[in-house]
């Protein structure tokens, strides 16, 4: 394990980067959705001379607050990403030493699901009845979409790690 290109530190760093990228990608989707929906509403109410001012003000206020919130979430998520990266590295090296891509994807999926389960268990203990299915939008926004992004991020992480191991393996083969 110690001889691999990707160390624990690099796995943590890459995990953190992928998590931060996931947060920003999600923030862009949320920002666009909110700006479009509020703008449609504004356009249907405000007459043209006053419309542009409120459209700009509202749009930039949405973008700014989403930016601040995503910056805070990126800091929290980078830690979760770093932990996930290290766990994924260890599990992949343990269960997939010969580095098969399909096996890596399967293992990454399982690791991702287990981590999500643990994460949501902690959230459930902390929030209890505030996690409600009463509003589909709320549930999708806070739990389902982030979970999908997390799942994809872990798969990407697993693929990146396996690719590095494969490259390392290929480079070592002539010497062996």
């Amino acid at each position: 394990m110690k001889n691999t290109v990707i160390s624990n530190k690099t796995a943590a760093y890459n995990g953190a980067l992928i998590a931060v990228a996931g947060v920003f990608a999600y923030s862009f989707a949320v920002m666009l959705y909110t700006i479009i929906r509020t703008s449609v509403s504004i356009c249907s109410i405000m007459p043209s001379p006053e419309r542009s001012k409120i459209l700009w003000a509202s749009g930039f206020s949405v973008a700014y607050s989403v930016g601040v919130f995503s910056f805070l979430m990126a800091m929290v998520s980078s830690m979760a990403g770093a932990v996930a990266g290290v766990i994924l590295r260890r599990v992949l090296l343990w269960l997939n030493p010969d580095v098969h891509l399909s096996k890596s994807i399967l293992i990454s999926s399982i690791v991702s699901l287990v981590l999500l389960l643990l994460l949501y268990l902690v959230l459930y203990i902390l929030l209890k009845e505030r996690i409600t299915l009463q509003y589909a939008g709320t549930f999708l926004f806070w739990y389902v979409f982030p979970a999908v992004i997390f799942f994809i991020a872990v798969l990407i992480g697993g693929a990146v790690f396996s690719n590095s191991l494969m490259k390392e393996k290929t480079n070592k083969t002539p010497k062996d």
Binding site: T38, I42, A57, V62, V68
Partner: peptide, 18 residues
């Protein structure tokens, strides 16, 4: 300054337009 103020503007202006 980072969250409350811009969000309050969005909601309050939305309310006035509503």
């Amino acid at each position: 300054y980072g969250l409350f103020e811009p969000l309050h503007f969005i909601m309050e202006s939305g309310m006035m337009m509503g």
